[in-house]
Design a binder for these strands. Structure first.
Lengths: 141, 141
DNA sequence: AAAAATTAGTTGGTTATTTAACTATCTGTG
DNA sequence: CACAGATAGTTAAATAACCAACTAATTTTT
């Protein structure tokens, strides 16, 4: 049954991804699901290190190098050397990046609201507990 | 909260993936997580069309073209033209592919058993219902 | 039966992920 | 202070995902 469950998890992730990508395309926003994951972190707080972004998005640091290059090409973020630790680079939003946040955040709210229709707080909490338990199992196993 | 939940889903998927890839590497089996997803379908029943594999693994048909090329290079599967519908190609396991199944299936059982430690049937069922509800929400929305 | 629509698979192009090897910088211990 | 080890980021190469456009075969419409 755990197999069916993980299959369902993948299906949900795919549907969320598909839905959001479609929204971006419909509004002629050149942003992938992966880039948006990074932008969400930055919309909350920018001027953070690439490694922090990697940790928050559960991605490898090499993926971040690549993703930030692409976001930079699109004029949404800039890299700045960290004066305190010259190994690090801090990522800042450009004005364009901030503007995009104002447009895209409501879409995200809308999407997660849609996903939560007829799902009670309790149900969601219980499911989160279950998934967390499974994560811990695999991590420590 | 739905955001946190989807974050957890990604985390679980990543952990399962990481754990299994490590198992393959430790045993010098040149198989990625994605290839294994295809193989699982074939170990259950081979001689099926690429499109069926795409549907079952939630992947695009173009991904299957690519994955089957790679599985073919590794000598695990063969493509055969479907006599009944010459557009289709049926994918069959080679002997090597079948042998691999005998080795790898126990690893999968083990992994999902590990993931299910201290998770009751009821919890899992309830979580599946919740996730299914969310999938339906997004699909129909 | 001919034309139109659908379906299976491939190809090309862009984007993303992961491993390994690499550079540069920082930290801690002797 | 020196040096070993850790950390931040980059690069290269292999694998993977996905869209659009395409070919070939089949099914549906008219």
């Amino acid at each position: 049954m755990a197999r069916q469950f993980t299959h369902l998890l993948l299906e949900l992730r795919d549907e969320l991804r598909r839905h959001l990508q479609q929204k971006f395309r419909d509004n002629i926003v050149s942003l992938t699901y992966e880039m948006h994951q990074v932008m969400v972190c930055l919309w909350t707080k920018d001027g953070i290190r690439q490694q922090d972004l990697a940790d928050k998005t559960l991605k490898d640091k090499t993926s971040l190098t690549y993703l930030i290059d692409n976001l930079n090409k699109r004029g949404l973020v800039t890299r700045m050397e960290d004066k305190k630790d010259r190994r690090s680079k801090l990522i800042f939003l450009t004005n364009k990046g901030k503007e995009l946040g104002k447009i895209a955040e409501p879409w995200l709210e809308e999407l997660y609201k849609l996903a939560s229709i007829k799902v009670t707080i309790t149900e969601m909490e219980e499911s989160m507990k279950t998934v967390q338990k499974m994560i811990d199992n695999v991590k420590t196993g």
